[in-house]
Design a protein around this nucleic acid. Sequence first.
DNA 1: AATTTTTTCCAAAGCGCTTTGGAAAACTCA
DNA 2: TGAGTTTTCCAAAGCGCTTTGGAAAAAATT
Lengths: 343, 343
Amino acid sequence: MNLKELSELLNLSQTTVSRALNGFPEVSERTRERVQKAAKQNNYAPNKAARGLATGQALSIGHVISTTNQNEMVNPVFGDFVAGVGEVYSKHGYKMLLSIVPPGEDEYQVYREFKAQSTVDAVVVQSPSVDDGRIEFLNKLGIPFIVHGRASECKVPYAWLDVNNRSAFVRATDFLHDLGHRRIALLNGREHMDFAHRRQQGYESSLSSHGIEIDPSIMFSSDMTESYGYQRTAELLKSDNPPTAILTASIIVALGARRAVQQAGLTVGQDISIVTHDDRLSYFHNTADVPMFTATKSSVREAGQRLAELLIQMIANPNMEPPTELLEVELTIGNSTGPAPTN
Amino acid sequence: MNLKELSELLNLSQTTVSRALNGFPEVSERTRERVQKAAKQNNYAPNKAARGLATGQALSIGHVISTTNQNEMVNPVFGDFVAGVGEVYSKHGYKMLLSIVPPGEDEYQVYREFKAQSTVDAVVVQSPSVDDGRIEFLNKLGIPFIVHGRASECKVPYAWLDVNNRSAFVRATDFLHDLGHRRIALLNGREHMDFAHRRQQGYESSLSSHGIEIDPSIMFSSDMTESYGYQRTAELLKSDNPPTAILTASIIVALGARRAVQQAGLTVGQDISIVTHDDRLSYFHNTADVPMFTATKSSVREAGQRLAELLIQMIANPNMEPPTELLEVELTIGNSTGPAPTN
DNA sequence: AATTTTTTCCAAAGCGCTTTGGAAAACTCA
DNA sequence: TGAGTTTTCCAAAGCGCTTTGGAAAAAATT
């Protein structure tokens, strides 16, 4: 069923039917209702390509995922983020267009194609690095975009939505300090990732403000896998001057850390305290009566929802200032922390 | 830059340029090269909507994700699966169109819209349940599709790619039996999920073949979260007749189980053995020299790649028989299993 | 050189929609 | 009642591409 057929069926012109469906005021309420009813009955919906061609809008938003620059790894946060974003897209009639960049191929080429083919109306930039080149590139290319996170070294204005990673890790470190911990290890994400950079700043800033010297030998950065958490923690525990507390960048890393602690015959929350950042992944509710981990919490799914709303506003209103939004975390106390052991 | 402009620039007709780019034989090699070069230089690529309108192809494949029927949870496997699928799509010029169904809305309506708007050329069905209604629905609707997994109760032919979950769990259970375990608990996925159903069959079939009675009180099914693994295991260990081995449906559940075991002061691989299924998620390499878990392994990413290839064949060849493919797992021995304790 | 065959190219139609510029019909109001 | 206003509707152009049917140019054959 296409417009022509539907309009013939209704004995109306295509124009009138189109206007009726798109909510134009020049059509009487009676006709509109008649049209809408017929459309529903016949399962009519405008052909996406034709509509896109006519309006110049793609009604799609692009997400480009490259795994080449992170050891082929898919960010475990990805699923929940996408779920949040996608819900909002649906409500506004947008489709999400996911492009996976095969290993060895060029992410920028995907954007160029997006532009040339006008496949998308806008783009979401995920996992920005400290000096992410995509921001400048997309600005030049002229595709509207919003960044999930920020790029510290980028000085031009751009739209972003981020968690306050710095303050989160200041608070987490302060909290451990208040419990008497003086030697606190950091298991961070990869160092060129902007979020990791900011978390490290927060960690260092807290330590400094308490007059504790920063010790690079207990600070690590890597892809956030379970085995990373396990191995670094195991090494730390065997070292001459082991930490009494560990700060990890994700629940998955924290699990690895916990495994190492338990394997060493120690108890998490007594011998060793762990604080982690928690993205509230849906398959990982850290929300028992007393949660497993003390954590800086921030729902990546809700972040996705909010980010999508901002982006859709930007599309509707191309001349607006690039919106920015900083989300604060909750620091919630769980079973993984306790006073520093006295010995 | 559009076709018209490019053809004027080259002093050729639009037809010739289009044919040159699309590899038709009626154009001389010299002209073709000239055209291709100019296209590259001017960053020309055919407008997706226009091309789609003219050819009737969307060059997109739809993935519909509904979280309503699984407690708002995003399958942790999702990211890696999508990465595998997406790589192959890219190589063939297809885009992946992701539609998240907001809670409370109807998944089927999304498919109807896909059809009416012809937004996609085909669809991937994920996480099928035992009696999944989508198969019949899509058949009637007339959208080509392939299922990741199977629906046991569905008798009509349809395209699918699945892991041999039954044999995987037969082998895992046999293996534990060989080690002397006679009381083996099962922490399965949600029971109406087809993969869980088949795994249970495998588990039961192995037990029966060894003359062991099936005990529903040590068989569980639920969303595969860490806390599920933890809680059930903790309960089991406290029970009158605790198992000596546990079979879990995912690494995440296995981690929860391990946590409970360790918390009870027991040792995994000695007091309690754990075998898990392992989807080889990228943030969870269970691949140390001796892996953390004994596991039935099967890369969900590779499954995605293969599935995408099958689907693209189906699109190119609409009258082919629905392809089906069954992948076998590897059973790899890790640190989490050992002989049943004798007492 | 004249004819046929092959190669190379093009004009124009059509995909299904939105939207412009107007016309017809229905209402006002003096 | 007739001029002006508003409401309701339509014909046709255009979005950028592919593709059909056919013509011109070049090459091969008689």
